[in-house]
């Protein structure tokens, strides 16, 4: 069984390719978000936060697993879930850059999680009603879990933003750091575009409107200001062009499968 991952000779039509790319977007967002949250295990500010972040990480890894399982069935180059998760190179991952950003302090993790899970919530709400039965089924199950992630992150963002002077300052700083990266979610990749035409993916403009409405209200309630949007041209989702953080994340995440190919627990 080949453990390397070769995407140089696509054998599928463009609609099939778009679907595969789209599933990678969903799977990689979940995998990388989960991997980052796992880094909090044992070092979170409180035991309850530790438990919550581990549970949320596990939800994401489970969701990633479900998407990769679907990919293994429809993508000729895929052999198994582990190969997809651990044996691709950096440019073959199509998550948005927001999820690969370092955890930073707790405020930065909450900023990332809030912006991502509110997007994820509306995305999965749409996908669970889409015409692809398998995508709809995975999205329906994930949606239930994402509801918890969204509320958890929103509650903390509110508490820290509308907390003490120090917590407010740190929450604002964290938002400023991650803000621009969230907009990559709303810039359609070619796969987003084709899947929308196929009636599977939602219109990202609509998702963005829902997201902005909720995020702006949340920030207002938390007495935080909406950061100015700067650079929004990130292209990890469409072209696999990542931030400098991704390579380090993969080096750690892929270590076991790279060092001991075909390793099984």
């Amino acid at each position: 069984m080949s453990r390397t991952f070769d995407t140089s000779s696509p054998t599928t039509t463009s609609t099939d390719e778009a679907k595969i790319h789209y599933l990678f977007q969903l799977a990689d967002n979940a995998l990388i978000m989960g991997q980052r949250l796992c880094e909090w295990t044992g070092v979170a500010p409180e035991l309850e936060i530790d438990l919550a972040l581990c549970n949320i990480a596990l939800d994401h890894l489970g969701q990633a697993n479900a998407w990769y399982e679907y990919l293994v069935e429809i993508y000729p180059q895929a052999t198994d879930v582990d190969q997809l998760a651990f044996c691709r190179d950096e440019h073959q991952y199509y998550n948005i850059t927001l999820v690969e950003l370092p955890n930073g302090d707790f405020a930065q993790t909450i900023a990332k999680m809030a912006l991502f899970s509110i997007f994820n919530y509306y995305l999965h709400d749409a996908l669970r009603q889409c015409s692809d039965a398998r995508i709809a089924a995975i999205a329906a199950r994930s949606y239930k879990e994402i509801q918890y992630h969204r509320r958890y992150a929103s509650n903390w963002l509110l508490r820290l933003g509308d907390g003490t002077d120090i917590s407010h300052e740190r929450m604002q700083k964290a938002l400023d750091i991650v803000w621009d990266h969230a907009f990559e979610a709303f810039t359609p990749s070619p796969a987003d575009h084709i899947m929308h035409q196929q009636g599977i993916a939602p219109d990202l403009e609509q998702i963005k409107a829902l997201w902005e409405d909720e995020v702006h209200q949340l920030l207002h309630k938390a007495t935080l200001s909406i950061p100015d949007t700067g650079f929004t041209g990130y292209r990890a989702k469409s072209d696999g062009v990542h931030t400098e953080h991704m390579g380090y994340l993969l080096a750690e995440m892929q270590y076991m499968q790279r060092r001991y190919p075909n390793l099984q627990w």
């Binding site: 309850e48 438990l51 919550a52 549970n55 949320i56 596990l58 939800d59 879990e145 918890y148 509320r151 958890y152």
Partner: peptide
């Protein structure tokens, strides 16, 4: 309630 996330998800 101590935590919305307990010993398992």
């Amino acid at each position: 309630l101590l935590s919305a996330f307990g010993t398992t998800a």
